[in-house]
């Protein structure tokens, strides 16, 4: 089976004027198979989001290779890869343009793909229903809905063009615990329905344990541990992973 995502020796160095360079991501390699849910966990500043931003080409890697669905996308443009991979951001309200309705945000990728406006509107209504929101949310503004509702709309937006890979960059961190559980349940339901792979970035090892097929632990830009959630949590090989587990459980 061709991996949906292949990352080899990925590196990101931020150069700062007059100071030494900072290596945010250092020699990271991993694969994902279609339909898999991979958890990427680690403390803040460990380079998780930088990896995500490089996969969707919002950041250019300093080294290494990224392949999506068998195609090398290391130097591709965001617009070239956004039909295959989508992202759900950390703070739901800030990920929608404050001056445009949720419906505009969800339907935007359909319009840029050349779908007629009327068809896009119908599709937006269908997408909203698929994430458990009523179609009249399309006419609301991001500040008029709750965080959980807004994150559901953000998931609907990510699903609009049926990506093969969904990246959730701390998608549940800004939500309270009960809403977190709802969003995770919705994600796993949608993943099964669409046969979509999911890279679930999160710092909460307990949340990732219940949701992911496999876990990667990142620390200071490197992957320090890899395995099924049970392996990682019950017999951690690294001191850092033990510390991370102790801090939660």
């Amino acid at each position: 089976m061709t991996p949906i995502l292949q990352i080899q020796n990925l590196k990101k160095i931020f150069s700062r004027d007059g100071q030494s360079d900072f290596t945010a991501v250092d020699d990271v390699s991993f694969d994902m198979v279609p339909g898999e849910c991979l958890g990427l966990i680690g403390e803040s500043g460990s380079g998780k989001s930088t990896v995500a931003n490089m996969i969707v080409r919002l950041l250019a890697p300093s080294g290494g290779r990224i392949s999506l669905d068998g195609e090398d996308v290391t130097d591709a443009d965001v617009r070239a890869i956004c039909r295959k991979v989508q992202m759900v951001f950390q703070s739901p309200q800030e990920s929608f343009d404050p001056r445009r309705t949720l419906g505009d945000g969800i339907g935007e990728s359909l319009l840029t793909a050349g779908r007629p406006a009327a068809e896009a509107r119908e599709e937006v209504a269908r997408l909203l229903e698929s994430v458990g929101l009523s179609p009249d949310f399309a006419s609301r503004y991001p500040h008029e809905v709750s965080g959980g509702q807004c994150q559901r709309a953000a998931i609907a937006r990510a699903l609009a063009i049926e990506p093969k890979l969904l990246i959730c960059d701390e998608a549940t961190s800004a939500l309270d615990v009960t809403v977190q559980a709802e969003i995770v349940a919705l994600l796993s339901h949608l993943m099964r329905g669409h046969g979509m792979a999911c890279l679930f970035i999160c710092h909460d090892i307990a949340l990732a344990q219940g949701f992911c097929d496999r876990l990667l632990v990142m620390y200071r830009g490197k992957i320090v541990e890899e395995g099924t959630p049970d392996e990682v949590i019950q017999s951690p090989k690294q001191e850092y992973t033990k510390m991370l587990i102790d801090s939660v459980l």
């Binding site: 969707v56 965001v78 950390q90 990920s95 945000g105």
Partner: peptide
């Protein structure tokens, strides 16, 4: 630098859009 602009880029918007 806002998340909504990143989301818009991921929605396939051209620079002019």
């Amino acid at each position: 630098e806002t998340a909504y602009l990143k989301a818009a880029r991921l929605a396939g918007c051209s620079t002019s859009r």
